[in-house]
């Protein structure tokens, strides 16, 4: 099954390489990985989407925790989380199709971020299903290019206290 891991790591050169290397060496697939600065300087938060059964997922967590630069990891697959992905989609358009596409885009609450004579670029944010659904609808018009960020996620307020990042405040 699909797994979402949230990791708090030291913001140091090579950390991404260590994590990517660990996944490839142990034979774990990376569907997507997002990295950005965390709430305190010197830390990054990574969201890794992978696949595996429960045993594989707990091995992933244990192996990640062994890396010195990894402060904390949590398998948030079954947790209440906010899960978002951003995609930029460039679609072929002409005078005939442009109004049709606008209709399709409406319920998705996307932004049109670039308009050309033969194409438009839309920005969509949401969970993976939403992005996939929009893509499927735009496919018949000719999708020229796609850039997706991959999923990033955070535990919801209702989730338990062991949320990655909490420990920064404890003076790590």
């Amino acid at each position: 099954m699909e797994r979402t891991l949230s990791a708090l790591v030291n913001d140091r050169p090579g950390v991404l390489a260590r994590i990517a290397g660990l996944f490839s060496r142990r034979g774990y697939n990376i569907a997507s990985i997002t990295v950005g600065v965390a709430e305190h300087p010197g830390f990054s938060r990574m969201t890794i989407v992978s696949a595996g059964d429960d045993a594989t997922a707990s091995q992933m967590v244990a192996q990640l925790l062994k890396l010195v630069d990894v402060i904390d990891v949590e398998d948030i697959t079954r947790e209440p989380v906010v899960r978002r992905e951003l995609a930029l989609i460039k679609v072929q358009t002409d005078k005939v199709t442009r109004p049709e596409i606008s209709h399709i885009l409406e319920p998705f609450r996307v932004s049109i971020v670039d308009v050309g004579h033969t194409s438009i670029t839309v920005e969509v944010t949401g969970d993976t299903q939403k992005v996939d659904a929009l893509l499927a609808l735009l496919e018949p018009y000719g999708v020229l290019q796609i850039a997706r960020t991959g999923v990033t996620a955070l535990l919801r307020a209702a989730a338990r206290e062991s949320q990655p990042g909490v420990r920064i405040a404890e003076g790590l």
């Binding site: 707990s58 091995q59 244990a62 925790l65 062994k66």
Partner: peptide, 8 residues
């Protein structure tokens, strides 16, 4: 002492 050895 190495948690990654458990159930590996």
């Amino acid at each position: 002492v190495d948690g990654a050895e458990i159930n590996k």
